[in-house]
Every structure is written in C-alpha cells, then in structure tokens.
C-alpha cells in the first residue's frame, strides 16, 4: 500500500509492451492476404490469346470438315477438340505463371469445377449420338454444353465469361434447330466467338 503514499503515478508495466503477434497468426495472416487477393482479383485463369488460337484452329477444322462424310466430320472435330484442350491448358498455365498465381488457385479451381461437368456430359452425348448415327445433332449439343460450362465456370470470374457462354448457348440453340448449318455454326461459335472474346479478354485482363 506504500505506493499510494508516493507522489508519482504508478502504471502497471508489462514485460512486453510492444505488439508482436504469434508466428501461427503470422502464417494465417499471410494466407488470409493471399486468399483475399485471389477472391477479389479480376484475374481470370482463361487466356484470351489461347482462345484466339483455339478460334483459329476451329475455323481451320470447320473448313477441313466441310467436305467430309459424317464419320470424317466427327473425326476432324474430335482432333480439333483435343488440340483445343492442349492449347487452352498450355495458355492457362502460362498466364497463371505470369500472374504469380498457381493454376489451381481460387479463380482457376472455381472455373474448372463449374466447367468440367459439362465436358463430361458432352462426352457422353457424343458417344450416344454417334452410335445412333445422329452426328448432325452434335454441333448444337456441343455448343450448348460448352456455353453452359462457360456460364457456370465463369460465374465467379470476370463478367465477360458468362457473356461469352450465353453467346455460345444462343449459337448452339440455332445449330440444334438448323442442323444443316451445323458446321458453319461450329465455325461461328468455336471460331468466331473465341476470337472476338479472346481479344477482348486479352486486352482487358492481362493476356
């Protein structure tokens, strides 16, 4: 009680008055910063230039497939689909590397989770319709499912992606009701739309 009689003030002195967080909190903070950056980023894993290249190969495929039989037409477009996958994955990897974010980070993972179910459905439809000899329905089915995949995959990404998905769905609907124009609409969709939106994405969202 002697301190009450002393003239000067008494403050409780803490051994460590300087503010230092625990190491665990430091790691959590860095993770939180990274997650927040990823979630808020307008970064899209989709590569605009990759899409342009996919569009060009699609137009070439449409030209090559036009004079073919149904079987030949299907073979050309299946080769084109494989080529497009290789181009898309390579371009996305390159873009993600340039941006300093892993491809499996937030935006890339969300896009894949939304897009892949439609790809699986498209594969099932392709096998079923080809076995029934209904290849003329495939352009509509492919364009519609690709559009649906881009809409759902792009829901958490830049607004351009869902817009592109809706355009694909519109072209796919046309192709489904106008099967005679299937090959031309494939060129317009997988070729034209990819090139137009690809240039747009590349100019607005870092390549």
């Amino acid at each position: 009680m002697l301190w009450m009689l002393e003239g000067h003030s008494h403050r409780v002195r803490r051994p460590h008055s300087r503010f230092r967080p625990a190491p665990q909190r430091a790691l959590e903070d860095l993770r939180y910063i990274r997650d927040t950056m990823e979630r808020s980023s307008t970064f899209t894993a989709t590569s605009g230039w990759g899409q342009v290249l996919m569009g060009l190969t699609a137009i070439a495929a449409a030209l090559a497939a036009r004079p073919q039989s149904a079987r030949g037409w299907l073979s050309v477009w299946l080769v084109e689909a494989l080529l497009a996958v290789v181009i898309a994955v390579t371009a996305m990897q390159a873009k993600a590397r340039r941006s300093g974010l892993p491809l499996t980070s937030g935006p890339g993972r969300k896009f894949a989770l939304g897009f892949l179910p439609c790809v699986v459905v498209a594969i099932v439809f392709t096998i079923a319709l080809a076995r029934l000899g209904l290849t003329r329905l495939l352009p509509g089915v492919w364009l519609l499912l690709y559009g649906a995949g881009v809409i759902t995959g792009g829901a958490f990404s830049i607004p351009l992606l869902p817009a592109m998905g809706f355009c694909f769905a519109a072209v796919g609907t046309l192709a489904l009701f106008l099967p005679a124009w299937g090959n031309a609409l494939m060129a317009a969709g997988f070729g034209g739309l990819h090139i137009v939106f690809g240039v747009w994405i590349a100019s607005q969202h870092g390549g």
Partner: peptide, 27 residues
C-alpha cells in the same frame, strides 16, 4: 530485434480491405 507491427492493418477486416485494394485499382 523484431520491429513493432502495425496495429492499424493487423486487424482482419482492415487487412482484408488493404489486400483487396492492393490488386484492384479501386473497389
């Protein structure tokens, strides 16, 4: 030797605001 941390941005919401604005021109 550890320096004192900046309490202003150590708080979660404030850290989130700064992090989000670090890679967006404006929000």
């Amino acid at each position: 030797d550890l320096p004192e941390f900046d309490r202003t941005i150590h708080e979660r919401i404030r850290l989130g605001i700064i992090s989000a604005l670090a890679i967006n021109e404006s929000l």
